[in-house]
């Protein structure tokens, strides 16, 4: 019983980080209707940022979150402003190939710069556990989950309340209308892409102490982000949160019941089921689908 509870709890913790990754993907799609197929590569950039900050300064894993997010914001802003912007009106498959090309370039650059070998962060903190009742929670994982949830909450508030956040939502709802009232669409889009990729980067820094960093992790993160987003409803922010938690628990449960290498079987099964029964996602609205 304790084992099951522990597995579920750890799944929830991982799910919070997945939610942050998915949050980034879904905000980019929700505003610009572009699917970032290089999202996992952005996570890996964040992981390398976390690793090298730790290797150089022996920083606490959480200290790398802000620099990683800032770096990825910059990358996202520039990519959107100078490259992706020209592809917004192009068909989906062209955008798809654009991002696949970007993903190949990033993975290639990672390989050239850092090599294929996995790099792990070794710190004493990774042996710490929190005890809540009979439950033992991995400390690093708990901190990552808490940080991820905090970032999601802050972004949520930013989108609701701030001027720029409202401009982003306006641009998502009605592009022409937003332009008419004086919103600089291209800048707002670039900020949105920056935020979306910063989410991936922050999540990367958070998971760097949990997984060994190497370039080939990227596709796995991209796929997890997709499943998460579709489960919750593409373009829906609460959906990303719900999807993340679901996937986290599903992975943990499959790893326990089946085998650790089959952890994603349940996620894919869940995905196909949701796609057929409720294609707009569990929370998403039907109009978000197109």
């Amino acid at each position: 019983m304790d084992l099951v509870a522990g597995v579920i709890a750890n799944g929830v913790l991982m799910g919070a980080v997945y939610a942050l990754i998915a949050f980034g993907l879904t905000i980019i799609f929700g505003v610009m209707r572009v699917v970032n197929f290089a999202h996992g590569e952005m996570v890996v950039i964040g992981m390398y940022a976390g690793y090298f900050l730790w290797a150089a300064f022996d920083t606490h894993p959480l200290a790398a979150v802000l620099p990683a997010a800032a770096l990825l914001f910059l990358i996202g802003y520039l990519l959107q402003f100078h490259l992706v912007q020209h592809f917004l009106a192009r068909p989906a498959h062209v955008q798809f190939i654009l991002f696949i090309a970007l993903a190949l370039v990033i993975t290639g650059a990672h390989l050239v710069a850092f090599g294929p070998n996995p790099r792990g962060i070794f710190s004493l903190a990774s042996f710490e556990v929190y005890r809540i009742g009979g439950l033992r929670l991995d400390a690093v994982r708990s901190q990552a989950a808490a940080a991820a949830l905090l970032i999601v909450a802050l972004l949520w508030a930013f989108l609701r309340a701030s001027r720029l956040g409202r401009a982003i939502r306006a641009a998502a709802d009605n592009r022409t209308g937003a332009a008419v009232v004086g919103i600089r669409i291209r800048h707002v889009y670039a900020v949105t892409a920056g935020i979306g990729m910063a989410c991936a980067g922050a999540a990367g820094a958070l998971v760097a102490p949990l997984f060994d960093t190497h370039p080939f992790l990227a596709p796995e993160f991209t796929l997890i982000a997709f499943i998460t987003v579709i489960l919750g409803g593409i373009g829906s922010l609460p959906g990303a949160l719900l999807g993340g938690l679901l996937i986290g628990v599903a992975e943990a449960a499959a790893a326990l019941v089946l085998s650790p290498s089959m952890k994603s079987v349940l996620s894919y099964g869940l995905l196909i089921l949701v796609m057929l029964a409720r294609p707009q996602g569990i929370i998403g609205s039907p109009e978000g689908q197109r």
């Binding site: 090309a101 190949l104 290639g108 650059a109 294929p116 370039p215």
Partner: peptide, 13 residues
């Protein structure tokens, strides 16, 4: 290692 992936990606781009 990885130069091929980089070149290939740049070509597609």
């Amino acid at each position: 290692f990885g130069l091929n992936t980089l070149i290939y990606g740049l070509l597609v781009l």
